[in-house]
């Protein structure tokens, strides 16, 4: 075996550093199920499904969680207060690459009484707390901040706000020679423009918080009233998404509507159909004003150590342990 024990020690130290950071700020560490009978319907994520078998009855379908969100939010609704968790999460059907492994480590925290904006500071403090002597400048605080609208104006050369309706967005795709099918949804058109023209150009000299995502990308984040934006940001380091944050939606009507529309969409497209529990919507009644952040820990460690690929900082990456390599040709 070819295990780099120095890297392993650094990983262990960083994960301990995360725990110290949240413990000293009075967050409660929680440990929620990885096997779940229902999931939040997220049409863009494919899931792993398995089965609880029994000699006495039919058993039950279970899913490996793509993030601990569904369980942590139930705790918050129940009045847990500030919580954090470091756990494995699972996403199916993503291509194995320097930033993807089907099983990965996620850090997720929720702090009550704050907004996504205030969580930027907390994330910056966490990064400062974890930074190693060898951490590249590009992965150290202070963070740069930019809104999605500013990024489009600067790197795509047009205002997303002024082109946010379907016909204008389609015209922009055509103007930039980006092929798109006639029946594509708004999400696909947006991402084709964003991923081709904007994301590769984002500044990489410092970590970047890209904030105010279009509210047409359906998430459980709050909309900014009177604008096409929502209170959501993503943290980029060296061009890779590291973290995602919302001011969490608390309006039960909007939460129910999210479940309804996303369940339909998921049923239409998913390779692995999932149970997206309506009971869960009821359990969220009384959800507190709060903001949550999810961080891909393997990606964060890769950034902090200056590594190039998450396969360098995780033990036994799937590509190495599959009996026949399913590696994509380069």
């Amino acid at each position: 075996m070819n295990i780099d024990y120095n890297k392993l020690k650094t990983r262990s130290r960083l994960i301990r550093g995360i725990r110290d950071f949240f413990n000293t700020r009075d967050f409660l560490e929680v440990d929620t199920p990885l096997l779940s009978p229902e999931l939040i319907p997220e049409p863009s994520i494919e899931n792993f499904r398995t089965r609880l078998v029994s000699p006495y009855n039919d058993g039950h379908e279970l899913y490996l969680i793509p993030s601990p969100e569904i369980w942590m939010k139930q705790l918050l609704a129940d009045g847990s207060g500030d919580i954090f968790q470091i756990c494995k999460s699972f996403r199916n059907s993503e291509q194995i690459s320097p930033v993807h492994n089907p099983e990965f480590t996620m850090l997720e925290w929720y702090k009550t009484g704050i907004t996504a904006e205030e969580n930027i500071t907390l994330t910056e403090e966490l990064t400062a707390h974890l930074a190693l002597p060898s951490t590249p400048e590009a992965c150290r605080p202070p963070f740069r901040q930019m809104t999605m609208e500013e990024a489009f104006v600067e790197f795509a050369g047009f205002s997303l706000e002024e082109n946010i309706e379907f016909p204008a967005l389609t015209a922009q795709l055509r103007a930039h020679q980006i092929p798109a099918g006639e029946s594509e949804g708004w999400e696909v058109l947006f991402h084709k423009l964003f991923l081709t023209l904007v994301e590769p150009e984002l500044p990489q000299d410092r970590p970047l918080v890209l904030k105010n995502y279009p509210s047409r990308l359906k998430t459980l984040s709050k909309d900014i009233p009177g604008t096409p934006w929502s209170e959501r940001w993503e943290l980029y380091m060296r061009g890779t998404e590291i973290a995602n944050c919302y001011t969490e939606e608390t309006d039960p009507v909007k939460i129910r509507e999210y479940f309804r529309s996303e369940s339909l969409e998921k049923t239409d497209h998913a390779l692995v159909p999932v149970e997206s529990g309506s009971s869960w919507v009821e359990k969220l009644a009384g959800f507190p004003e709060s903001s949550g952040v999810a961080i891909g820990v393997d990606r964060l460690i890769t950034a902090l150590t200056g590594d190039k690929s998450i396969q360098g900082v995780i033990l036994f990456p799937l590509d190495d342990i599959l009996p026949i390599s399913k590696k994509q040709p380069e």
């Binding site: 863009s44 993503e94 690459s97 993807h100 696909v188 084709k192 964003f194």
Partner: peptide, 23 residues
């Protein structure tokens, strides 16, 4: 669009809340 191209770079991207793409 009827023009022959060769792929010089290919990168898979799965935006946090989006479909799977290749750039």
């Amino acid at each position: 669009k009827d023009i022959p191209f060769i792929v010089v770079e290919r990168e898979f991207v799965n935006p946090g809340k989006g479909s799977a793409f290749c750039r």
